[in-house]
Simulated scan of single mutants.
Amino acid sequence: MKRITALLLLLTTTGLQAAPFPDGQATAGKALFDKYQCNSCHKDMLGGDGNAMFTRANRKVHTPAQLIAQIKQCSGNVGAHLSAQEEQHLGAYLNRYYNLK
């Protein structure tokens, strides 16, 4: 019985970790990323490829909660008023770079 309980707990935890933005759709997030020209700020900050923002060694984001907080901050920089659902979409899209669990 203890083994079954432990296995169920492990499977539940693994399932939660596999989808940090379960309500988000990456394709919708990409459309928002392009609509608000998010990479324009990144290019100004880093020069060249703005996507390097996500893969640099000293990046600020290490958890799904940190990514949502960063999305909130950045959306204010571009004048976007994103819904919670849109934040989930952007999180799902950006997680292709971050691979957060």
Rank of each mutant, 00 (worst) to 15 (best):
R96G: 11
L90V: 03
A18M: 10
K30N: 07
Y93T: 00
Q17F: 15
I71D: 03
M53W: 01
Q88Y: 11
G76P: 09
M53K: 02
A28D: 06
M45F: 05
G91S: 07
K35L: 13
C74R: 13
A65T: 09
I4C: 08
D44N: 14
Q73Y: 14
A57E: 11
M53N: 00
N95K: 13
T27S: 15
P20L: 04
H89P: 12
A31E: 05
S83E: 06
I68F: 06
Y36L: 12
N77H: 13
G76R: 12
E86K: 09
Q66Y: 11
Q17L: 12
D49S: 04
E86L: 04
H62C: 11
E87M: 15
T14F: 03
L8F: 11
Y93P: 03
Q17Y: 08
T55R: 11
T12L: 14
R59T: 07
A26D: 07
L46V: 01
P64H: 12
V61H: 08
Q70T: 09
T12M: 15
R96S: 07
P22D: 07
S75F: 04
V61D: 09
H81L: 08
M1K: 15
D34K: 14
P64L: 06
N51H: 10
T14E: 02
A84L: 08
Q25V: 10
L8V: 10
G50V: 01
L82V: 03
H42Y: 06
S75Q: 14
N39V: 01
A65K: 15
P64K: 05
A31V: 02
Y93I: 03
G48P: 10
K2E: 00
I4Q: 06
C38E: 02
T13L: 14
L32G: 06
I68E: 05
Q66D: 05
E87V: 10
A92P: 01
L46N: 00
L94C: 05
K30I: 03
A28M: 08
A6L: 13
I68W: 02
Q88E: 09
A18V: 00
D49K: 08
F54P: 02
N51S: 12
Q88K: 12
G50F: 02
K72R: 15
D44S: 14
L9G: 13
E87D: 08
Q73G: 15
R56C: 09
L11Y: 01
Q17T: 08
Q66F: 03
H62G: 15
F21G: 05
L100T: 01
P22T: 10
L9Y: 04
N39P: 06
H62V: 10
A84D: 05
K35V: 07
Y93K: 06
Q17N: 11
H81Y: 06
Q25I: 10
G15S: 01
F21I: 04
G24T: 07
H42N: 06
Y98V: 00
T27W: 13
H42V: 03
S75Y: 04
G91P: 01
A57M: 13
A84F: 03
T14R: 12
L94D: 00
L11S: 06
N58M: 11
S83D: 04
Y98N: 08
C41L: 09
G91D: 05
T63I: 05
Y36H: 15
E86G: 09
A84H: 08
I68P: 02
E86R: 07
S40P: 09
A26W: 07
G29N: 08
G76F: 03
K101W: 04
L90Q: 00
G29F: 01
E87Q: 15
R3K: 12
G48K: 12
T13C: 15
Q37M: 08
